[in-house]
Amino acid sequence: MLSAIRNTLRVPVTTATRLFQTSVVQASDKFDHKRIPLEDEGVQGEKIVDLDSALKVKQNLFPTLDSDNLLFNGMLYKDLPICNIRVSHNNTIFTLTDAAGTVKVIRSCGMEGFKNTKKGTNIAAQTTAISIATRAIDRGFKTIRVRVQGLGPGRLAAVKGLQMGGLEIISITDNTHVSWNPPRARKARRL
């Protein structure tokens, strides 16, 4: 069926190429060919297609309005404890709160024994994450959702460390403060 359609598409193209040999026709010939991968269709649209395909393949990757009432390990999604991770260039701070926002456990790379520049490394972030995970499990937190704030070297390592520490992560949220009309920022660093 598909090959029949393809053949019908190809017929006018063949005659055209033989007659004119222009690049325009070549483009159309290339376009309707079966082996042209999807990624080749422009750079701009690729992004949207990419995310759309992610949406289609895994239906419940992104939260909807009903996801508040989903059950995870017998708890509603909106009642799950939250692990806030503040990642900066110089430190990583973990705060474990309940769903209402009351702080239960707080750990930072500095508290973990890393000093000065070592605080801002991914190894420090991972160690701290494992340490807070064990503390959280001691207090009875097992399933959490993660909210990451800021960019830094510990961003990925922090979330990974929480999982390595034995916590089950349900969702990852980015909460980086970004403004499109911010107040004047501090002056640039002189390098």
């Binding site: 895994k58 419940n60 990757l61 992104f62 939260p63 309005l65 996801s67 999604y77 909106k78 959702r145 909210r147 990925l156 979330v159 990974k160 999982q163 089950e168 992560i169 349900i170 969702s171 990852i172 949220t173 980015d174 909460n175």
Partner: peptide, 15 residues
Amino acid sequence: SFIARTVFVKNNNVD
């Protein structure tokens, strides 16, 4: 919170 910029973790695949 937990509506925008949020992704659910599938099969414990945090990465």
